[in-house]
Amino acid sequence: MRGLRAIITKEILSFFTSPTGYIVGMIFLLGTGIFFTIDLGNPFPEASLTRFFVGLDFGQTTFGGVTLILILIAPILTMRLISEEQKLGTIELLLTSPVRDWEIIIGKFIASFIFLLFMIGLTLYYPILLFLLADPDPGPIYSGYLGLILYGALTLSIGLLASTLNSNQIVSAVVAMGILLILYFADYASTVVTGFWSTFIQEIGIKSHFDDFHKGIIDSHDVVYFISITFLFVFLSIRILESRRWR
């Protein structure tokens, strides 16, 4: 566990002591701020975080919000985690050091998750504004943030997997974004087909699993989905890193 702690500390320091992390955070907060205030100009805006969470309403669907921003931001946060080590050759040092493969992956995952929590924590400014200036329903805010944390963890795990697959950071980010966009738009695709396939595609998609959270519902199935898929991608990352030893 000492190895795990060392990895987490090193990665957290690298997140908080490099301008890149802050620039990513700045873009994240600018995007979420725009979505939070996007409805304010309309007559009778609602005192809720719906726009912040899921973006604009387009009749029968929504698009945007922090769920879309995370798809673009999470791969940027994770793209360097393993890719950089592979490119610089320091991965060999890591693999030969007294640190287990799972400690490397989980350590890097936890560090990026902590940085994501820091960014999400800054967005608490919006609900504070709501509580100060209006009377919002607190339930959907609590459940929305819980969902956001789970959703964020999933996006990071996919980013981490992409980073493990490739030594080129840009390629890693693009691959992760591609996977995440497919999972994001699966919800829209589910409306094209009907019956079993509609349900199946909806089950795979991440957006449909987040939708209940922002409405104020915590469904144990959605929680299980996010946690299990996050673990799956972290597990795949560990296996792929481990494969370097015998490939």
Partner: peptide, 8 residues
């Protein structure tokens, strides 16, 4: 599944 409705 269990669903918990947190709305007021």
């Amino acid at each position: 599944n269990q669903r918990f409705d947190l709305t007021a």
